[in-house]
Design a protein around this nucleic acid. Structure first.
Length: 566
RNA sequence: UGGGGGGUCGCCAAGUGGUAAGGCAGCGGGUUUUGAUCCCGCCAUUCGAGGGUUCGAAUCCUUCCCCCCCAACCA
């Protein structure tokens, strides 16, 4: 018997670039990437894709990845976010080589700016906000040179130093790169390098009054860290000439090691039935549409974590969606597939009745109860087993009983026999209703010969239900989640309406369930498969005696499909 | 009316001149003490459209169409 040769996995375009660079020894066989979040919000699954690409590629090619906080705008950034970002990256399973901050490089950035000024490549501009905009022109009209464009290097140096020293008011002057006001690429029309901002920075405090702009700081930071491949999203594509320009002005090679880093852009992740922009996510939180950034309905990494997603599943998802340059919207079902696959293999099984319906076994006495033993996981004997009490009063799920059984129904119905998983066969003999006609209790008989669940006469019983002993069951709060938005694309709303229209009013449903007694010791972070219903994770709010479970994802439900088709 | 990207199955995505991988979803069937899992099978005569080159084109040329991004002292 021969083992089939593994199919050579095709490479995505970034891997091709890297392998090409490795082959040509461009960076002497070195691969260095960075994940550069701005500490102004929580990370979401889109960032997770970027994290997986940056760390994953470095890992694959024996390289390293830095975590660098892009903190060049003190008015928007805060330490609060730094910690959450660190935690999320770690949780995803990645270790960074170095932890840096763009602000670590403020002095370097400043020195290089002076160098550019000295070379006549940058100038101090006195134009106001509005004037700069006006001089910049637009897509169809070339820009006009700033009247301050031809100041001498000496004057510029003096002015720039005085900007730094605090002699000028906020917004009164800027440092600009002298490139080309006529360029069809707006980014090259003398972009701003520095602005004056008397703002307290979360790391440098009040040491600086001038702060560098992204385009200037980012590439320089990459070069300082000797990043080989600077991976970012598509919207930075036409910033690349500027990225290169700033680094290439180091004509004497006094500032950066060669070869210089290369910026590569890929398509950001979008997910169906959710929004991904920081602004909208913030709105959901502020408006109370969700209970916070880590609400399990949020596409944030902390939300997914709280919901019960595993880092493995998130990484698998990133792997599945691939890396390319075309705009993409991943189907949330792919994400769900990834978490189901992981949890199916690892999550211990348990029984929980979400919407309890009482079952009384009429031919069993109070003292006739017994214990059944069930494996924690059908495929993992090493996980051991659990013992469940069975007695004459039980809870089953309301979904498992129909007074009028539809076609192909093999759950409980009047006169029907079903198996209670691992315990026994019961037959429904009588229905008890309340004054409103609601079924409140089922009176059933059991076949004592079927203890364990099999009938000795070999009669076939197709339906198997989960159950829990009423006397022994624990109450638990169960939070059921659905998509936050009803439509695949929340932004696709009729003319004149806004995206709030699409918010799913029933994205959260809270139930009091009856769960098997062994769950009493479950602690936040524990994950289970509640048999026949879904995967659940113990929530942060859970306490001994006051259990709270989040439904991470439901099991696939082919009965629902059959019924939907009629 | 400028510049930069992109268009291969409902959603992702391989393919780089030799006759359309794979995953998700969907559909059919088998196994099953979870209607789960697992297993098997089906699912693009066609690659945004039209022309052309070639024995041969998703891949080359050409014209056209559509989508996304760019006019913050944001990143």
């Amino acid at each position: 018997m021969t083992i089939p040769a593994p199919e050579p996995k095709s490479l995505h375009f970034i891997e091709e670039i890297m392998e090409g660079d490795l082959a040509s020894q461009k960076h002497a066989g070195r691969i260095m990437t960075r994940f550069p979040p701005e500490p102004n919000g929580y990370l979401h699954i889109g960032h997770a894709k970027s994290i997986c690409i940056n760390f994953g590629l470095a890992q694959k090619y024996g390289g390293r990845t830095n975590l660098r906080f892009d903190d060049t705008n003190p008015v928007k950034e805060d330490v609060e976010y730094v910690d959450s970002i660190r935690e999320d990256v770690k949780w995803l399973g990645f270790d960074w080589a170095g932890e840096y901050y763009a602000s670590d490089y403020f002095q370097f950035l400043y020195d290089y700016a002076e160098y550019l000024i000295a070379q006549g490549k940058a100038y101090v501009c006195d134009l106001s906000d509005e004037q700069i905009k006006e001089y910049r022109g637009n897509f169809y009209t070339p820009g006009k040179n700033s009247p301050f464009r031809d100041r001498s290097p000496e004057e510029n140096l003096d002015l720039f130093r005085r900007m730094k020293a605090g002699e000028f008011a906020d917004g009164s002057r800027t440092l600009r790169a002298k490139i080309d006001m006529q360029s069809p690429n707006m980014n090259l029309r003398d972009p701003l390098m520095y602005r004056i901002r008397r703002a307290h920075h979360h790391r440098t405090g009040d040491a600086w009054l001038i702060y560098p702009m992204y385009d200037y700081a980012h590439g320089v930071s990459d070069a300082i860290e000797t990043i080989t491949h600077s991976i970012c999203t598509l919207e930075f594509e036409d910033h690349r000439p500027l990225y290169d320009w700033f680094l290439e002005q180091d004509v004497e090679g006094k500032f950066f090691q060669r070869p210089l880093p290369r910026q590569i852009e890929f398509a950001r992740l979008n997910l169906t039935h959710t929004v991904m922009s920081k602004r909208r996510l913030l709105q959901l939180v502020q408006e109370g549409q969700v209970r916070g950034w880590d609400d399990p309905r949020m596409p944030t990494i902390c939300g997914l974590r709280r919901r019960g997603y595993t880092p493995e599943a998130v990484r698998a998802f990133a792997e599945h969606v691939g890396v390319a340059k075309r705009d993409m919207v991943a189907d949330v079902e792919l994400l769900e597939h990834c978490i189901r696959t992981d949890l199916e293999q690892h999550a211990p099984r348990a029984m929980a009745v979400l919407r309890p319906l009482k079952v009384v076994i009429t031919n069993m006495a109070d003292h006739e109860g017994f214990e059944v033993e069930l494996p924690r996981h059908p495929e993992l004997p090493e996980l051991g087993s659990r013992r469940l009490p069975f007695a004459n009063e039980l809870w089953i799920d309301q979904d498992d009983f129909r007074e009028e059984a539809p076609k192909k129904w093999f759950r409980l119905a009047p006169g029907a026999e079903v198996r209670l998983r691992g315990a026994a066969l019961i037959t429904c003999r009588e229905i008890v209703k309340d004054g409103n006609g609601n079924v409140v209790e089922l009176r059933c008989t059991w076949d004592p010969a079927s203890k364990g669940g099999d009938a000795p006469d070999g009669r076939k019983v197709k339906g198997t239900l989960h159950w829990v002993s009423a006397r022994h069951a624990l109450d638990a709060e169960v939070r059921l989640y659905e998509q936050l938005f009803l439509q695949a694309d929340p932004m696709d709303v009729p003319e004149g309406q806004d995206w709030h229209q699409g918010i799913n009013p029933t994205s959260l449903e809270i139930l009091t369930a009856k769960v098997e007694p062994g769950l009493a010791t479950a602690v936040p972070g524990d994950r289970f498969q509640f048999e026949r219903t879904g995967y659940f994770a113990v929530d942060l709010d859970s306490r001994p005696g006051a259990l709270v479970f989040n439904r991470t994802v439901g099991l696939k439900d082919s009965w629902a499909k059959i019924e939907a088709k009629g």
